[in-house]
């Protein structure tokens, strides 16, 4: 649809800028423009329930601003004939059901003019929020079955082989297996991995983060920055360390909790939130910080794996939807 600064004629769809958004109507004559509510800046703040299809003069509609007239392009749906357009508008005088996102003045005008509801303004805004994509968190119990270092990335096999601790070796192997599953099901099978000089692994298809320990592994995958941490729910082994790492408010909140179960859950949530944040920020090692020192987005979930309670937290930037998925390895 093109919009031109020309004089409207009977049955045209017209629009006028009202603040930073457009207000739409159907032109009948200079004395009659049909619209779904007056332009936002012309009406006092009223509830949506009070907004109805109404008519005004052209002067009232444009309120001193330039009026643009819709001119359909070849690719557009064929417009409704002018007389029918006007009739469509007049038939709806007094109709309510206004909703700024789903049933507004632009929807109304397009429905009269083209026969279908459409709103370019909400579509454009929705596209701006397309970055609200998803960070996916997968977690799994570490299998006790034997395993061979058969990962497709040779350097990762070498890295695992060099571990002295058998549990860590097992964790590192299975967290990578989980990572391959996560990336494969979300971003395809063509993943290649590079170990950066900092020791951090990166992938050509997405960002990812790994966490493992106490019999569970977790990964987060996303197109944006992400960090994940999973810990078994437990009380702090050293309250003084917690008091140094947590803010005064967090420490106060912790001590005000009534039961050890509540304290353990609170402590583990806060701890994993901090650690996931710092992993996302590419810190080479966990450097706990007061919450006021970070402003990233963190989501936590209490999970149960083989009868043991854990908390998994994922940090992401920018803000994204988060989904958690438990799988069997």
């Amino acid at each position: 649809m093109k919009w031109k600064l020309i004089d409207p004629v009977y049955g045209d769809m017209i629009r006028v800028k009202s603040g930073s958004i457009w207000h739409y109507g159907i032109y009948v004559s200079d004395e009659q423009v049909v619209q779904f509510g007056l332009a936002p800046r012309q009406r006092a703040r009223v509830s949506d329930a009070q907004v109805v299809v109404c008519q005004s003069t052209m002067d009232e509609f444009c309120d001193g601003s330039f009026v643009e007239v819709a001119v359909p392009e070849k690719r557009d749906k064929k417009r409704t004939p002018p007389a029918q357009t006007v009739q469509n508008a007049l038939d709806r005088l007094g109709e309510g059901g206004y909703n700024i996102v789903h049933n507004n003045c632009e929807h109304f005008a397009y429905q009269c003019y083209l026969g279908q509801k459409y709103c370019s303004q909400t579509d454009d805004i929705r596209k701006q929020f397309a970055f609200l994509s998803e960070v996916k968190v997968y977690y799994a119990a570490v299998p006790s079955t034997p395993f061979a270092l058969d990962l497709p990335t040779a350097l990762r096999n070498e890295e695992i082989a060099s571990c002295q601790n058998a549990d860590v070796k097992r964790d590192k192997y299975f967290v990578w297996k989980l990572l391959l599953r996560a990336i494969g099901s979300n971003y395809g099978k063509d993943a290649t991995f590079v170990k950066q000089p900092t020791g951090k692994w990166t992938c050509n298809l997405c960002s990812f983060s790994l966490s493992h320990g106490d019999g569970v592994v977790a990964v987060s995958v996303s197109k944006a920055d992400t960090g994940v941490d999973v810990e078994r729910v437990a009380l702090p082994s050293n309250v003084k360390v917690m008091e140094r790492v947590f803010s005064q408010k967090e420490v106060t909140d912790y001590h005000q909790l009534q039961t050890d179960e509540q304290k353990a859950l609170y402590f583990t949530q806060k701890w994993t939130q901090k650690e996931s944040t710092f992993k996302m920020l590419n810190q080479s090692s966990f450097l706990a910080s007061k919450p006021s020192e970070y402003t990233q987005h963190v989501v936590s979930k209490a999970i149960d794996v083989n009868g043991t309670s854990y908390v998994v937290s994922v940090a992401c930037n920018p803000l994204q939807r988060v989904s958690f998925c438990k799988i069997d390895l």
Binding site: G19, V101, T122, A130, R321
Partner: peptide, 14 residues
């Protein structure tokens, strides 16, 4: 009203 429009759509998407 513009802020509402942005906020509602952001909430819907999220």
């Amino acid at each position: 009203s513009v802020g509402v429009l942005y906020l509602v759509i952001a909430i819907e998407e999220y």
